[in-house]
Amino acid sequence: MNFRRVIVLDLASLGIGESSDANRFDSVGADTLGHIATLEGSNFQLPTLSRLGLGNIRYSDPVVGLPPVEDPIGFFGKIRSKSEENSKLSGLREMFDFQTATRTTSVIDAIVGLLGVHSILISDYQSYLSNQNQAEVIPVNTDDAGFKELHQQVIAPNNGLLYYRTLGLQENAISGNRQGCIDSLKTVDQHLARLMRELYSTDLLIITSTFANDPALDVTPTREYLPLIAYTSSSPEGKALGIRRTLADVGATIGEIFGLEVSNESIGSSFLGELK
């Protein structure tokens, strides 16, 4: 597929169940999505994310209100962090950094410096993002402002990378406000429905999370598997992407799309070839 732009929607704080190394991070029993959903029970519904395959990720252990759908339109799987650190920024570094023949850099800067396309980052202040010298960083402090900017950027015919890190879910998860988490996810779901209508046929939308934060546990962040959904309007029939062992697979996919030269020392593996 000839993708010209990748849009990464980072649902920061959204985990989907304890990871295989959860015991090392005091996160046994963590399940951000599952514990949020139990507050509303069968009334918990995210129709757009469900159509994309969010419920299919947990087909053997369904989240209440999010059963698997028969014909998901997204490519779906789960992904985890490989980093020995578990913080709100370690996932970002793992996702976007890669090794060239001479140094470590990020796909964010590299695609601008080498290829002359855009990298646009929409987020509250995060030092990692602000240090991407080649990128345009658009500061926002609410999801209302963030999604407004995201929609404006999506309809513009630019090539490159567009990244948005949502704010409401992580704020409510930190404070232990499960109802606030539900409201934030429903807001995301509504904007996703609009976003999918705005995409160009050469756009790839990747929905994931760079860290988890189960409001039902005292530890912050929690070590969990994270959702991974990829969608393109040019391929409306999705399938499973399996379990990805590192967030670096997202960066590796972006790198392959834009033809970056990645060293064999980089830990990520592209899933671009699976999107068909």
Rank of each mutant, 00 (worst) to 15 (best):
D97T: 14
V6N: 02
L54I: 04
I73Q: 11
S27H: 06
T166C: 03
D71I: 10
I257G: 01
G273E: 15
Q190C: 13
L115E: 07
T253E: 11
S90W: 01
T246A: 09
G176T: 02
A110G: 01
F76L: 11
L272G: 11
E224R: 15
G160E: 03
V28P: 05
E70V: 14
V188R: 02
P157H: 06
T187P: 00
I254T: 03
S130W: 09
A173F: 01
L228M: 06
T105S: 02
P236T: 01
V107Q: 02
T105A: 02
V64A: 04
D97G: 14
A135I: 07
D144I: 14
L241Y: 00
K276L: 09
A135T: 13
V188G: 01
R51C: 00
H35Q: 09
V117N: 09
S83I: 06
R58S: 14
T38K: 14
S201G: 10
E70G: 12
E198S: 12
G168R: 14
S184V: 06
R165L: 12
F96E: 06
Q152C: 04
D183M: 00
I254M: 07
N264T: 15
S175T: 01
E94G: 04
A230S: 02
L226M: 08
D71C: 12
Q134Y: 12
N213Y: 10
S13M: 10
A240F: 07
A101K: 11
A30G: 02
I73T: 06
A30L: 03
P221R: 15
L66R: 02
G176M: 00
R178V: 13
I122C: 01
D21A: 15
S127T: 15
P72E: 01
T104D: 03
E171L: 04
F44T: 14
N264I: 15
S209W: 05
L226F: 05
Q132V: 08
R178A: 12
G34D: 00
D26M: 11
E40V: 00
D61L: 00
G255R: 00
